[in-house]
Design a protein around this nucleic acid. Structure first.
Lengths: 245, 245
DNA sequence: GCTTCTATAATTGTGTACAAATAGGCTAAT
DNA sequence: ATTAGCCTATTTGTACACAATTATAGAAGC
């Protein structure tokens, strides 16, 4: 697992110095930047400065650019000469096809090289469940995003098909920002509650060693989640339906 | 479609000069190098020299390295400081998971955003069918590889799900070298014949506008092809079963 | 006031020199 | 003869300077 919560600038610079190979340094940069993009530290539309980032990390533009190029290939950035490096926008309509594909791939998780469920795996899901329960009682946007990411990575453990992992991960990071961008604060608690239920259901399925059931539950929730997002988007600006505000 | 047959060095250098944007230049480099790798112009294990390639294309190492980095991310190259840039080996065992995933994705081609079959599409498949028939009467390794690639790209037209395209393309280029590396000359003609039958069957399905059927046929052939490759590999070195040699 | 052109500032792309790392050969000691 | 250590050539990685490109602001003309 390489999903460290994002660290302080000095820590990252230190890690980069301690890294022995160029590949290690690249991975650090890549994961840190991807995390910042998906946690909306750099919201969609943000312009990044190669020089500023290089200075922050204590390196030159060359190794930084490699990380930026891969992020661009993954659809999270877009660089253009004379313009800048911009964090891509997330649009639900454009992401519909990605969502469809993700749903199908999730079904494959239960079919292609399914992992044998052991105690460690059950525990990993339970840990997520506990965190979700904690989050339910004190919802926060960043906490929700972080848990969503971590849950995805635990779910990945259910299949041992490496190409499937790679593909699913790429697609996940293309879509995960949509939640933070579309869910208004007033709906955060209810979304967290839904997420909590999903995690509980899946944890239960895993506890009974039923990987296929877990995959089906997840697929269903992906589908429902997308539909909620669609409703959220079409209704945005039109109302705040509850009488609170 | 960006699959030009590989061009002469001077042509490529000229194209690079004529290109207006950096992205265009990158794409030229990427497609040319990927094509050379998959056509086994650079066989697995080949060491590429950044400097030599840069000289050949009349550019510096910087833009070349971007193309190499993406090819490395796609699993076709591997660079290491002090060692070199090596074309990755293709191993059937490692590719088994990729093949499994490709089979499942092919089924999705018929389900996710299937294209409406029109005259142009039917004609595109028929063009492949004709080329396959020509190849059957004069089999050649490079001709087989080229047709296999072109057929893949035509098949991609059956779905309009762009993420599915991207994923399928990446996986295809990870596997397509296996044919040229495993099929001995003596079996080339029979493999071409099998391929010819597949193309004919699929072209027929497309002619009747049945995308799902085409996808199922392709899936079946992928499966059978993998099994033939497995037999090929396990039997390699043990024999040349026919009494010719 | 509006438009259009130009100059300028800011940003990424490219070229190049040098640093870091590795493999392979050579030498010397056992 | 073999093995360990070192040295050198080769290759990719990094830093940096400069070129190419673009957006923006300002001035001039209408």
């Amino acid at each position: 697992m390489n999903d460290k919560p994002d660290l302080d600038t000095a820590d990252i610079a230190r890690q980069l110095e301690e890294a022995t190979s160029a590949q290690e340094r690249f991975q650090i940069l890549f994961f840190v930047l991807r995390d910042r993009i998906c946690m909306l530290v750099y919201p969609p539309g943000t312009q990044l400065s190669e020089e500023a980032l290089a200075n922050e990390f204590g390196i030159s533009r060359s190794p930084l650019r490699k990380a930026l190029q891969i992020l661009e290939a993954d659809g999270l950035l877009r660089s253009q000469q004379g313009v800048g490096t911009l964090v891509t926008e997330v649009d639900l309509d454009e992401l519909q096809q990605v969502y469809q594909l993700r749903m199908e791939l999730n079904e494959l998780t239960g079919k292609l090289s399914p992992a044998t469920v052991d105690a460690a795996l059950v525990q990993a899901f339970d840990k997520i469940r506990v965190r979700a329960d904690v989050l339910r009682h004190a919802p926060s946007r960043s906490g929700f995003a972080r848990l969503n990411i971590d849950f995805f990575h635990v779910f990945q453990l259910l299949s041992e098909n490496q190409p499937l992992h790679d593909v699913a991960e790429k697609l996940f990071y293309q879509t995960c920002r949509i939640w933070l961008t579309l869910i208004p604060d007033q709906d955060l608690a209810s979304e967290v509650a839904v997420f909590c239920n999903e995690v509980e259901d899946i944890a239960k399925a895993i506890a009974t060693h039923d990987v296929s059931a877990a995959a089906l539950i997840r697929r269903a929730h992906l589908s429902m989640g997308f539909k909620r997002l669609r409703r959220q988007k079409s209704g945005a600006g039109a109302e705040s339906t509850d009488g609170a505000s």
